[in-house]
Design a protein around this nucleic acid. Sequence first.
DNA 1: CGTGCCTGTTACTTGCGGTAACACCAGTCT
DNA 2: AGACTGGTGTTACCGCAAGTAACAGGCACG
Lengths: 214, 214
Amino acid sequence: MDTTQRTDQQRSADRRRRELLEAADRVVLRDGPQASMNAIAAEAGITKPILYRHFGDKGGLYAALAKRHTDALLDSLRAALDAPADRRERVEATLDTYLAAIEARPQVYRFLMHPAEGSQPGDPGFDVGKHSAPLLRRMGEELAQVIEERLDLGPGGQQLARVWGHGIVGMMHAAGDWWLGERPCSRAELVRSLADLLWGRLAAAGDRMGGPGF
Amino acid sequence: MDTTQRTDQQRSADRRRRELLEAADRVVLRDGPQASMNAIAAEAGITKPILYRHFGDKGGLYAALAKRHTDALLDSLRAALDAPADRRERVEATLDTYLAAIEARPQVYRFLMHPAEGSQPGDPGFDVGKHSAPLLRRMGEELAQVIEERLDLGPGGQQLARVWGHGIVGMMHAAGDWWLGERPCSRAELVRSLADLLWGRLAAAGDRMGGPGF
DNA sequence: CGTGCCTGTTACTTGCGGTAACACCAGTCT
DNA sequence: AGACTGGTGTTACCGCAAGTAACAGGCACG
């Protein structure tokens, strides 16, 4: 078994893997995250054991699937984050990019955010951390890095940046999720409102009655 | 069948229901959200069909369970939100209350945030909205109402309040989730950092190098 | 030629959600 | 008393999805 041979085989296996992922993608986007392995295999024109040979178990397949979409979304977010404009514009562009993505493909969004994979049955619990979609974590870390690189936050700035990164991403996510469900306003309005929140309008707003206010 | 009779029966059924919920609580807190109905029934000293008679299906049981904890958490949050203090202190108290709760009982937190119940298999998809734990939605709505009552936000203030309510709750959630997993700092520091974010420090911070900054 | 090594299959086990059918025990109505 | 009703509880089953042997052909290599 010389090298070129193995490379050929690996290439073919990779191609196959990509085909399988695309088939899985179609099924998951059609049937939601609870799509069965049988259904996915059928869509790919094969049977279950092959899927298991390629991805180990359902979690492996879903992880591979999620990675594709997560990477794609992160790429477009990075582009918005790196655009040449002032801070407020960048923030708004990033928010808008994210919201546009989840608006355009809610099925993908739902799949990424709700993998619905309770960890191994043998888990002793207590591992809060890997759940809640890795997408949120990755976005948070990415944003934290950008914040830390670009902003001068004084001592303790690195940690502050991380808190803010995850916090802002969570804000974006929750507001987006709610907005996607109720559609109470246009995307542009939502972006503006969130940016206003980040710009301190909450602290600056006046009280309504007499008391100390919220 | 006079009234007292039916009341008696209902009372007994309610007591039973509470016992079952407590048993379910123990199991879920021990085994995580993927606890089987069999395990729960065994813990309660009975068998499956009784659970189904009381709660319909697994989703019903989990909903009842979640409602208990959600209500409890919301009560303590309301208390923090209504305390007599100025705005910044209230915000910090609310953040701290939430974080203390998830820190004290991570299992409960995890259960509430990741119910892992893909909707009916027959669903035609596209129903993004009921997922992502009702807890987040309820907290968002609650906070929105408080904001709208207490703050003078000018025209469009109601909608702005709702966006902010969900956004702030999401920020709190994501930051808390990340913090619980990595414990990069004390709770007090996290609270302070988040409050600073809400107070506009992101917009106020200086750039690091020359360019337009983040 | 046989020997590995892919790819693919059928057929199975295991485990869980959910249900049907039956059994028991209390009061109630006639 | 004896049939009727409504609650609690059971065992035993169905259906379905995850995951796993065990086996069958194609294709290169010695």
